[in-house]
């Protein structure tokens, strides 16, 4: 392996592994918790709740004013002993489905949840139909009678 190839592989590996993933992006908050479990719940919630202002960032990754306020609220609710479910309900009542990266299963979100499966099924049926027909064509024996064989020989100039 040439030196330059090694070098470029190193660079690629560094870029790949140094990429910020998930909560590596998180804002440095000074929130204090009573125990590890609360802290972990806070991290999970602010990773899974979406900032309403910034379109495609979670609460933990956003510096937006409203994201800051919502992190503060999540912290308060955890300390007050509310469950994750209750905190999510609080957010849903104010910001709707948008606040969740994993929207709730409701009449309005059915297509969002099952649309991909429906398209996969349509594609699957189409592919199955095409393959089946192709096999049928393949399996049909193409038999030539004596006169056809003679004509074929004549055409290809065989003996």
């Amino acid at each position: 392996m040439s030196a330059s190839l090694k070098l470029s592989l190193c660079v690629i590996a560094t870029i790949l592994f140094a990429s910020p993933v998930g909560s590596a992006l998180a804002q440095v908050d000074t929130f204090e918790f009573e125990n590890e479990v609360q802290q972990q719940r806070f991290r999970t919630l602010s990773d899974e709740l979406r900032c309403p202002m910034c379109q495609n960032t979670n609460l933990s990754g956003s510096t937006g004013g409203v994201a800051e306020d919502l992190r503060r609220e999540v912290h308060r609710m955890i300390l007050e002993g509310m469950s994750d479910r209750e905190i999510e309900q609080f957010m849903f009542e104010r910001y709707g489905d948008f606040i969740f990266y994993r929207p709730r299963l409701r009449a309005q979100t059915l297509l969002l949840w099952f649309g991909p499966i429906i398209f996969l099924l349509i594609g699957g049926f189409a592919a199955w139909g095409i393959f089946r027909r192709a096999r049928e064509v393949e399996e049909t024996e193409v038999a030539l009678d004596e006169s056809q064989k003679a004509r074929l020989n004549e055409l290809v100039g065989g003996d």
């Binding site: 309403p52 202002m53 004013g65 409203v66 306020d69 503060r72 609220e73 104010r94 910001y95 709707g96």
Partner: peptide, 13 residues
Amino acid sequence: LDGRFGIDLGVYG
């Protein structure tokens, strides 16, 4: 001041 009422209204800016 702290945007708490805004959260109850669902304000995002």
